[in-house]
Amino acid sequence: MSEEEVEATGWDAIEDQMKRLYGQQEPKHYAAMLPYRLGGKDPLSGISAYEAQQPYPHWHFVTFGFSELYDKESENLEYSGYGFELTFRLARSAEEQEPPGWGISLLQNMARYVFSSGNIFASGHYLDANGPICLGADTRLTALAFIDDPELPAVDTPNGRVEFLQMVGITADELEAMMTWNTTSFLHASEEMLPAYITDLARDSLLRLPAIKEAVRLGIERDGSQTGILYVDELGFEPAKGRLLGTAPAVLTMGARQAASVASLLRGRLLKGKPLRLTCPKLQIILEPAQETGCVQDGEIVRISLSEESILELETKLQPKEGEFRLSTAKELKVQVRKTYIKDQEGNVVETIG
């Protein structure tokens, strides 16, 4: 075995898994011109796209670079690099000879996020793209879900374990359903309508199908929600204050964009006896079920205890529109909802919520 082959054992392990599916098919391969570590813009060393025929024609992308492709460098002996590579299945038309470039860009953007933040993806995760996953496309797919690739089991390489996580394009209401129930359960319930979890920009929301909508309702009722932490763009808290004619209530503030999500999660978390953590860079607010409503602040962490009556009232009153209200079941708490301004990469407001 040559020195070059020894150094590329991680890369070879990925290719071996793809050869198991596609034999000697030569994939379309896109290599980074300049390595990321040398100042290049593309974190991934390469991306390959295979022509798959089943269950219907599609491109099957796989990345090279989240795991350690050459020598072992990390101290974690169990996993190779970040411990996964991404795959992506994209519907392919009969006349397509090359995979769409936006799919390559999307995978590199996912790598930029992971490499810059250190946050990794895992099966069951989801990500709001805040717009079409293919910029400029007329599509309802505005978010991504992650699940184990159905044809690529995890593999043990000389550099550690590598899992293959498949990205799946989803609609905004499907994202909401996954947040309030469970990503993996939702995708499993949709397997018949979404075979191999292939992303098709032209498809409509699966929640238009009564069977899927009912599966979500029953799932939330049975399981509650998997979402224990919700990242919010705008979050604030002011403790109750004494004043001449009484006490000013504590004030919980959030943006309209997340208001509906928080309302949906109250039933799937708090009414199932589970807390919900709202977080932003400078503040964490933990909503938790309790016999009586109350607020306690300790530095950047705020705990808001809510009775069942308060949870149900908050669920009803919390809407994605600007305004404020107090709970009749907890007059010591006031909730403010502020408009959310969605901006593009240049800082221009492209959408206002609330």
Rank of each mutant, 00 (worst) to 15 (best):
T340F: 00
P210M: 03
L44W: 04
A177C: 03
M193L: 12
D16F: 10
I14V: 15
L318V: 12
S117E: 06
L271E: 13
L266Y: 10
A145R: 04
M179V: 07
S67L: 06
P57H: 01
V216P: 06
T316R: 14
V216Q: 00
F61R: 04
I133S: 01
A111F: 02
G23L: 05
D204V: 07
F325S: 06
L312I: 14
R338E: 04
Q166D: 10
S123C: 06
D344I: 08
P100Y: 04
S123F: 02
A177H: 01
S2M: 02
D128T: 06
A256Y: 03
T139F: 01
G23Q: 08
L270D: 08
M178D: 03
P320C: 11
K282M: 13
L206S: 05
R217S: 08
G219V: 10
I286K: 06
G169F: 00
V114N: 06
L206G: 07
R89Q: 13
F237I: 11
N130F: 14
L127C: 13
L314M: 15
L278S: 00
S67V: 11
A240Q: 01
A13P: 14
C295Q: 07
A31K: 09
V335I: 13
A154R: 08
E4H: 12
A52R: 03
M33F: 14
R277G: 00
D12G: 09
P275C: 08
S264F: 11
D16V: 12
A263N: 07
L38R: 14
F146I: 13
R161I: 11
F64E: 00
G273P: 07
H29N: 03
D148C: 05
P55G: 02
L287A: 03
K343E: 05
L165K: 02
N76T: 15
A137S: 08
F325C: 06
E192A: 09
R92W: 06
S117L: 04
E3F: 10
A122Q: 15
I229H: 12
